[in-house]
Amino acid sequence: MIALFWISFIVSLVGSALLITQKHAVYALLGLLIAFGASAGVFLSLDAPFIAVSQILIYAGALAVMFLFVLMFTDTRTEEDVGLPGAVGSRAVFDPATGRPSKKKKKKADEEEKKPALSGMVMPKPMAVAVSLALLVCFTATIVTLPSDYNRFGPLPSAYDGINFEGVERSADQIKTDPNLLPFGSTEAVSRTIFEGFPLAFEVVSLLIFAAVLGAVLLARRHLVGIPGTQDVAKESGHA
């Protein structure tokens, strides 16, 4: 377990470093995936196998694919694709004739749009480093000053009584035969927690996801003739 943890520790550091340093979006996504996979390893080493599997399924399986798809739709692979770094008002400008980004027009637009008041407020990258480092220092200090019972994890009960919700000490054989005895972190223990402990929260989240699905469909749909609120793509793409 401890070996798994340290491997996951190092791999997730590498993954997150990839994510924040790579210019190319697909490589950054790869870093994110690595970090997620390593987090699943951390969950496993913390006796949470169900969460580990959900992590792989939801993040690595579903979310990463969604990111890839949107990258494909928007055709913006790198930071440079969306504009020059470090300057405001430098978004891509499109040539109405060809429908592709035009460097010449963009330069002109940049000149026009460079307003002194705004360009003064642009935050440079070092400032981002400073803020996040300050945050890390604060967090680390908090963690270091935690009380001493956070020095190690206590022993787990060998199984929970799934009916009385109490920790009980049973032998491994008993755990295999008695259906009401649930080990820590098992799928059944987690699902009992969901449905017997927090059914309302569970239902509310299902509503939230439903709303998100509706919202995503509404936001991403194309222009529909006669339905107000949808953008006419053809008309607006000319002057981005």
Binding site: I58, Y59, A62, L63, M66, F67, F69, V70, F73, T74, T76, D81, V82, G83, R91, A92, F94, P101, L208, I209, A211, A212, V213, G215, A216, V217, L219, A220, R222, Q231, V233, E236, S237, A240
Partner: peptide
């Protein structure tokens, strides 16, 4: 997070349609 990413990506797609950028 799944809901948020769904909405976020939809917003990005809508923005890209309008402005042809994901900036």
């Amino acid at each position: 997070a799944a809901a948020e990413v769904g909405i976020g990506l939809a917003i990005i797609v809508a923005l890209y349609r309008r402005k042809h950028t994901a900036d």
